[in-house]
């Protein structure tokens, strides 16, 4: 059982939904990312997704793209990121998973990436550009190291295919709320309820919903049908304000914002 599995078991007992922020490693530097991780998880986030900056992220909208560009512009490397995680994760009360392009994993070597992630206290991987057909080698390596390989299902995934993805996913299923890229949206699509409801009957894995979620109303709509919710661009956008605000101000802003979401989620 990975730390992700344990978390969801625990939350299930408590009847609690997971709140899962996404942040970009090294935006704008790794010391800040480390502080931010500690702040987020101290204030009740249940698990954190750490994005590994990539030069060509085709699933990401302008906000996360820009955060990747900022981090890479400062010359951040994969080994710096893992070193930061190695030092930070022992102080965290909750698991961290990396969101990472297959281009990066392949270059590092599948085994090497998973091994280093594990040594750095990472509990799982989300690889947004690795479809289920290509995922077997990585899945086997993750299983051997007891890391979750969380796979994604989208509104346009045919149902027979969704079953295959569910069968090969571990940790949880990442249900992408929209056909599109990451970024805040005004409304959540109607199709989610049917799709997630159907999926729920097919699998015992927890189902977390992400993409486009940014306010308490979204949370109140989606939390009842999900085991967890993922919020990315709305947080990353606040970090971009470091251009004009001090670290303390930005941390406070993120904290206040996350608190409003946490209140909404714990009421569900």
């Amino acid at each position: 059982m990975s730390a992700v599995d344990q978390l969801f078991q625990e939350l299930k007992k408590q009847g609690q939904k997971a709140f899962m922020p996404f942040i970009t490693a090294g935006d704008p530097n790794l010391a800040f990312t480390s502080t931010l991780l500690k702040t987020l998880l101290r204030h009740g986030s249940h698990i954190c997704e750490v994005g590994i900056p990539y030069s060509d992220p085709i699933a990401d909208g302008p906000v996360i793209q820009a955060s990747y560009t900022r981090a890479l512009a400062h010359g951040i490397t994969l080994s710096d990121i893992f070193e930061m995680l190695r030092q930070t994760t022992p102080e965290l009360a909750a698991p961290v998973v990396t969101m990472v392009s297959h281009a990066i994993i392949y270059r590092a070597g599948l085994k090497q990436y998973v091994k280093t992630a594990k040594q750095s206290g990472v509990a799982g991987l989300i690889v947004p550009d690795l479809p289920v057909e290509e995922s077997k080698p990585l899945q086997q390596i993750c299983q051997a190291e007891n890391l979750s390989l969380i796979q994604l299902i989208t509104p346009n995934t045919p149902r027979d295919r969704a079953l295959r993805i569910a069968a090969s996913s571990t940790g949880f299923i990442y249900y992408v709320s929209v056909v599109g890229i990451t970024g805040e949206r005004k409304q959540v699509p109607q199709s989610i309820k049917d799709n997630v409801g159907w999926l729920r009957e097919q699998t015992d894995l927890p189902i977390c919903i992400g993409f486009g979620i940014s306010n308490p109303e979204h949370i109140r709509t989606l939390a009842p049908m999900a085991d967890g919710l993922i919020v990315g661009s709305a947080i990353v956008r606040r970090i971009a304000a470091l251009d004009e605000q001090s670290e303390a101000e930005v941390l406070q802003d993120v904290e206040d914002y996350v608190k409003t979401l946490m209140v909404a989620i714990s009421g569900c």
Partner: peptide, 20 residues
């Protein structure tokens, strides 16, 4: 069938594009 030319090729894209 998987779009492989020897070991090269394949399909490394988000799930959203797979159906298309």
């Amino acid at each position: 069938h998987a779009g492989r030319y020897g070991e090269f090729g394949g399909r490394y894209v988000p799930e959203t594009l797979i159906a298309a």
